[in-house]
C-alpha cells in the first residue's frame, strides 16, 4: 500500500496535465479527435494550431468547462470528470475571449472574483489593488470595462486568473490581437509566472510565440496532435528556414522544381499561380550550388527570399495541406504576417 501511494505521489507532482484520447464532437464535427498530452510541472507547454484546430475546445475540457465525449484527463493527478471541484481549485483560466464583467469596473471585477474565492472583504480589496498595480491597470481601475482596450482587457483577465495563485494556468491565445509591445509585455509576465512555480499551458497560432515561450509544443490540426516535442526538435524536422523562389517564366517552373529537389535534396512545394517554389533550407551552403545550377539551366529568377519557418510551412511540411484562411476572423491573417516579421 505504502509503495503505491509513494509512486502515486510522485506521478502527481511530476505531471500537471495528463490527457489521454480526449474527444469532443459537435454535431458531426469532431472538434477534438483523440488528443494526448503530458505537461510537466513547472514548464510552459504550447499548443500550436490554426484557427478551428480544436485548441479552445481542448482547453475547455481540461478546465472542466466542457465534458469530454471520450478519453480522460488528470490535473495534478485529479480526474477532470470525477473531481471537477478539486481541479477548479488548481487552475486559472484565461479564455480566448475575456471572461470579465463588461458592466463593472476592473476593481469591482477583481473584488467579486476574490470574494467568491473566499477572501475577506479587506483581503479582496488589497488583492484587487495589488493585481491592478502589477498589471499596470491602476489608472483605469474605476472605469467600466467597456472603455478598455483589447490589451487592457487581456491583462485584467489574466490578473483575475491569478487571484488564487493557481499552480496551473491555461492561457488561450493570450496575445492574439495585441500590438507587438503589449505582446512582449505579456510574454514577460508569462515567464515570471513560471519562475514563481506555476505551470502554463498556452495555445497560439504563432510558431514565433511558441518558440519564445514554450519548453515543449504540440502541433494540432483538425482535432489531432500531429507533432509533439521540443521546439528545437520541431524546427529541425521542418528545416530551420525556408527558401522561396519566384520564377520569371511560367513554363520553367516544373524544371526548376526538379532542380531544387535534386540540389537541396528536399521535397518542394510549388504554387503555379504565383510561380513560387518553397523548399526547406536545412543547409544554407547548398543554396550557392542551387543558384549556379539554375543559371546553367537558363532558368531566370524573379525574386529570391529566405523565411524563417512559419506555421504555414510547419503545416505544409507535416500535414501536406496549408493553414486554411480564417473565416471567423479576417484579422488573424494580418497578425500572422506580423508574427513572421517580428
Amino acid at each position: 500500500m505504502t509503495i503505491t501511494n509513494e509512486s502515486d505521489k510522485e506521478i502527481n507532482s511530476n505531471w500537471a496535465v495528463e490527457a489521454r484520447g480526449l474527444v469532443k464532437t459537435f454535431a458531426d464535427n469532431r472538434a477534438v479527435d483523440g488528443v494526448d498530452m503530458n505537461v510537466r510541472t513547472g514548464t510552459i507547454y504550447g499548443v500550436l494550431g490554426p484557427n478551428g484546430a480544436g485548441k479552445t475546445t481542448t482547453i475547455r475540457m481540461l478546465s472542466t468547462l466542457l465534458k469530454p465525449d471520450a478519453g480522460s484527463a488528470r490535473i495534478f493527478g485529479h480526474d477532470i470528470v470525477r473531481e471537477p471541484h478539486i481541479v477548479r481549485q488548481l487552475i486559472g483560466v484565461t479564455g480566448q475571449y475575456a471572461s470579465v464583467d463588461e458592466t463593472l469596473s476592473a476593481t469591482e471585477n477583481l473584488i467579486i472574483f476574490s470574494r467568491l474565492l473566499g477572501l475577506s472583504r479587506v483581503e479582496a480589496k488589497r488583492k484587487a489593488t495589488d493585481l491592478l498595480e502589477e498589471f499596470g491597470l491602476t489608472e483605469a481601475a474605476k472605469r467600466p470595462l467597456k472603455k478598455f482596450s483589447g490589451g487592457m482587457r487581456r491583462r485584467l483577465d489574466l490578473a483575475a486568473s491569478l487571484i488564487a495563485q493557481p499552480p496551473l494556468i491555461f492561457l488561450d491565445e493570450p496575445t492574439t490581437g495585441l500590438d507587438p509591445r503589449t505582446r512582449s509585455q505579456m510574454w514577460d509576465t508569462i515567464r515570471r509566472l513560471v519562475k514563481s512555480g506555476s505551470t502554463i499551458l498556452l495555445t497560439t497560432q504563432y510558431l514565433d510565440e511558441a518558440d519564445q515561450l514554450a519548453d515543449r509544443i504540440a502541433v494540432i490540426d483538425r482535432g489531432r496532435v500531429i507533432v509533439e516535442g521540443t521546439v528545437d526538435g520541431l524546427k529541425a524536422s521542418v528545416g530551420t528556414s525556408s527558401l522561396q523562389l519566384s520564377i520569371q517564366n511560367d513554363k520553367d517552373i516544373l524544371r526548376a522544381c526538379l532542380l531544387v529537389e535534386n540540389v537541396l535534396g528536399v521535397p518542394t512545394i510549388m504554387s503555379p499561380e504565383t510561380r513560387k517554389i518553397t523548399a526547406p533550407m536545412a543547409n544554407a551552403d547548398l543554396v550557392t550550388d542551387l543558384l549556379l545550377s539554375l543559371r546553367e539551366a537558363g532558368i531566370g529568377l524573379k525574386e529570391i527570399s529566405v523565411q524563417r519557418p512559419t506555421l504555414d510551412e510547419v503545416f505544409l511540411t507535416i500535414t501536406g495541406h496549408g493553414v486554411e484562411p480564417s473565416k471567423s476572423n479576417p484579422l488573424i491573417g494580418n497578425h500572422h504576417e506580423e508574427a513572421i516579421q517580428a
Binding site: K9, N12, S13, A16, T41, I75, F76, G77, H78, E83, P84, H85, I86, Q89, L90, D130, L131, E134, L162, Q165, P166, P167, L168, T189, R192, L193, K195, S196, G197, S198, T199
Partner: peptide, 19 residues
C-alpha cells in the same frame, strides 16, 4: 505578487464538494 512562490499543486489539501 506574481513573484511570490506558489504552493505546488500536489501539496494542496482539497475537497471535491462545496459546504
Amino acid at each position: 505578487m506574481i513573484n511570490e512562490l506558489i504552493t505546488p499543486g500536489a501539496d494542496r489539501q482539497l475537497k471535491n464538494h462545496t459546504s
